[in-house]
Design a protein around this nucleic acid. Structure first.
Lengths: 168, 168
DNA sequence: CAAGATTGACAACTCAATCTTC
DNA sequence: GAAGATTGAGTTGTCAATCTTG
C-alpha cells in the first residue's frame, strides 16, 4: 500500500504543463474511478452488493409499485439492455428482485423489488450514503454538491436523448 | 461520516421521487457513463482504439523517454496491476507499445511507446479531444472546465494516496 | 417490419496465487 | 520477507443475432 518508491517516480514524471494528468477530463476520470471503487468495496464487504446491484434496487424502490420495465432500467442506469438482463438475473437468483409480466404489452417485462430486496436495500443504504458523502461530497466542499449537479445536468441532457448510440 | 439514519426515515426518503434520480452523485455517474461511452465509440470507429488503450498511449507520450513502469501506469490510470498487464499485452500485439527491461531494478518492466504507437496516438488525439470538448466541456459552459478540475482535485487527492485498497 | 427482452460469443477487468528480484 | 509483474479463474459487461409480440 504505502509505496514510497512509486511515489518518487510519479512526482518526477508529473509535468503540470503538458501532462495528460491535468485538466477537467483527467480529474473527472480519476475521481470517478477512485470514488466508485471505494464505494463498491464498502458495499461488497458490508452487504455483498455490487454498486450496480445497489443502484438497481434503489431505482426499483423509487419507482411506482416498486417495479420498472427492463428498458427503462437500462436507460436509468446507462447500461445496455443485455446488461440489465444479466444484472436482474443475478438479483433474481438472490431473490432480491422478481420478474413480472407486463399485461398491457406482452413483449415487456417488469423487474420488481421483493421484500428481501427492500430489506437489503434499507440495510445497505447507510453504507452507500456514507461512502458517497465521505469520498465525494465532503472533498467537494460546501456547495460543491449543488454546483456539481447543476454543472453535470446539461452534460447528461445533451447525451441522454438518443439512447446509447449517437453521432455529432 | 457516521450516518445513523433510521430505517423508517430511510424508507420515507426512498419513497420520495427525487431520491435516486437527482443530486451530485447521480449526475456524476450518469455523466461519466454517457460521456465515456461516446468518446470510446468515436475512438473505436475512427481509430480502433479503446479509451483505455488511448490513455495508455497518452501517458507514455507524456512521460520522460516515452516510457513508464507498469506500476506507475496502473496508478495513473486507476486500474489494477493485472489490468495494466492485460492492456499492455494488447497494445504490444498491435506493436503500439513494447516492453523494456529496467536495468536499475530487474523486477521492473517499462512499457515504452513505439513509433507506430506515437503515430497512432497523434492520429487519434484530435478525435479524442473533439469528443471531450463536445460531450463534456461544451455542456459545462465557460469556466466550467476549470471549476470541474479544481472541484475534483481534492477528491482524487484524498483517495489517491494509498493505492487501490483503503479504509476509512 | 419495429420494439422488448434474452442468449451466445467474446472482451476486459479484478482477485488470489505465483515467480523473480530486491 | 516485501515489491514488481504476470497468470489462472471467475465476474461483469457489450455486440450481434434471435425470439416473441405489437
Amino acid at each position: 500500500m504505502g509505496d514510497l518508491m512509486a511515489h518518487d517516480r510519479m512526482t518526477e514524471s508529473l509535468d503540470r504543463n503538458a501532462c495528460a494528468g491535468s485538466g477537467a477530463w483527467s480529474a473527472f476520470l480519476r475521481a470517478h474511478a477512485l470514488v466508485t471503487r471505494r464505494v463498491e468495496a464498502d458495499l461488497l464487504s458490508a452487504h455483498r452488493l455490487s454498486l450496480v446491484s445497489f443502484e438497481v434496487l434503489e431505482r426499483l424502490a423509487d419507482a411506482p409499485g416498486h417495479r420498472l420495465r427492463m428498458a427503462d432500467l437500462a436507460e436509468l442506469l446507462v447500461v445496455s439492455r443485455s446488461g440489465v438482463t444479466r444484472a436482474v438475473d443475478r438479483l433474481e437468483r438472490d431473490e432480491l428482485v422478481t420478474r413480472e409480466r407486463c399485461d398491457s404489452d406482452l413483449r415487456g417485462t417488469y423487474a420488481a423489488l421483493t421484500d428481501r430486496g427492500m430489506a437489503r436495500l434499507l440495510a445497505a443504504a447507510p453504507t452507500h450514503q456514507a461512502g458517497v458523502q465521505f469520498y465525494l461530497l465532503d472533498p467537494l466542499g460546501p456547495g460543491g454538491d449543488v454546483a456539481m449537479a447543476t454543472a453535470l445536468g446539461p452534460v447528461a441532457d445533451r447525451l441522454a436523448t438518443s439512447g446509447i448510440a449517437a453521432k455529432h
